[in-house]
């Protein structure tokens, strides 16, 4: 059994009258890559700041490796943070920034330098140690922030939307690198993000935050395939939520159902019977959105409601797709992919 890196119990935080975090219980294992996913204002960053010690909880406890640290200052916790704005010290060189944590902990100068250089090499910034943060690009600053937090070998690394300010290509590369670094050093990563794709690709487990509470904690595939609440179904990936009368017509029973767009196949002939054992529905194409590698069809169902279907562009070209607009088509999916979503508890 692995040790527990973080345990949050009944964590609450109120500012004035508003409740930013409304009761969070969470356990994060040693060595886990754990993501806290949610829209802005959902409380995920506040939880992170309470783990780091920048905010004191209104109620509840924070335990790190079995020790209650709720009332301890940030410098008394074995936790380092990578900040969203990097928070590099502008008056220090890159090397001094990275070595700062070692310096304040009394590590001798020679060892400091060796370890700082090793940390910079680990994030791919050899030879930039003499520069000032202002002389670096956004991506490089992000790496310095990462090296600075990693060099002290904390038990837990907290990352507050660290890739938010990077452009798409760089972000995708950093996602892969972060995951590799985490595997290499074996430190628990707690990663805050509002980007569901980022959370899905990197994490061992994800907690989905909504209005100061956790809606679901599970592995990425579980979150995506079996959303526990309508909010999770809607926030993670694009989802078709079927409720009420539409659900009864399309699925056959009342309740809330989610069907992922890529699980739905387009049948050009709306009267085609469909493959055996599949559910079908007929409708009219309201909109066709060309996405390059795939195409999104918004289909108004005959029985009411609208479904989004995603098709890989295997043979079709954009010219053919325009003809679909307004066409009558059929949709088919496997009944297993119409996932029943429990109502919000």
């Amino acid at each position: 059994m692995e040790g527990m890196a973080i345990r949050l119990t009944g964590l609450r935080k109120t500012y004035g009258g508003t409740e930013a975090v409304a009761g969070v219980d969470l356990e994060i294992a040693d060595g886990e890559f754990f993501s806290m996913l949610g829209p802005s204002g959902s409380g995920k960053t506040t939880v992170l700041r309470m783990i780091a010690g920048f905010e004191a909880p209104t109620a509840g406890t924070v335990e790190l490796a079995g020790r209650d640290v709720t009332r301890l200052a940030p410098f008394e916790r074995d936790v380092h943070t990578v900040f969203q704005d990097y928070a590099l010290f502008p008056h220090m060189t890159v090397e001094q920034n990275v070595a700062y944590g070692l310096k304040v902990r009394g590590v001798p100068r020679a060892e400091r330098l060796v370890r700082a250089r090793a940390a910079l090499a680990q994030v791919g910034l050899e030879g930039l140690g003499r520069r000032r943060p202002a002389e670096l690009s956004g991506g490089q600053r992000q790496r310095v922030a990462l090296a600075r937090a990693l060099v002290g070998r904390p038990r837990v690394l907290l990352l507050d939307e660290p890739l938010g300010a990077l452009d798409l290509k760089l972000r995708e590369r950093m996602q892969v690198e972060l995951k590799e670094i985490q595997r290499e050093v074996g430190i628990t990563f707690v990663f805050v993000t509002h980007d569901q794709e980022e959370a899905l690709t990197m994490s061992d487990r994800i907690a989905v935050f909504h209005q100061g509470r956790i809606e679901q904690v599970a592995a990425p595939a579980e979150i995506y395939e079996r959303p526990a609440t309508p909010f999770v179904a809607g926030f993670v990936g694009t989802s078709n939520l079927l409720t009420g009368e539409t659900a009864r017509q399309v699925v056959g029973t009342a309740g809330t159902y989610s069907i992922r767009p890529e699980k739905i196949r387009i049948l050009p002939d709306h009267e085609a019977p469909g493959d055996p054992g599949h559910s079908t529905a007929a409708g009219t194409v309201a909109e066709v959105v060309y996405l390059g590698d795939s195409t999104r069809f918004l289909v108004d169902l005959d029985g009411g409601g609208r479904l989004t279907a995603l098709q890989q562009n295997l043979e079709t070209s954009s010219a053919d797709l325009a003809a679909f607009r307004g066409a009558r088509i059929g949709l088919q999916w496997h009944p297993d992919h119409a996932v029943r979503v429990p109502e919000t508890p």
């Binding site: 010690g53 410098f75 700062y100 944590g101």
Partner: peptide, 23 residues
């Protein structure tokens, strides 16, 4: 002075006096 610079210093293990002198 950005709050996060002070937070970062404390986060890296610096006590208040140290943060004052170094940051």
């Amino acid at each position: 002075l950005p709050d996060n610079l002070l937070n970062a210093s404390a986060d890296l293990g610096a006590r208040t006096g140290r943060t004052f002198v170094s940051v």
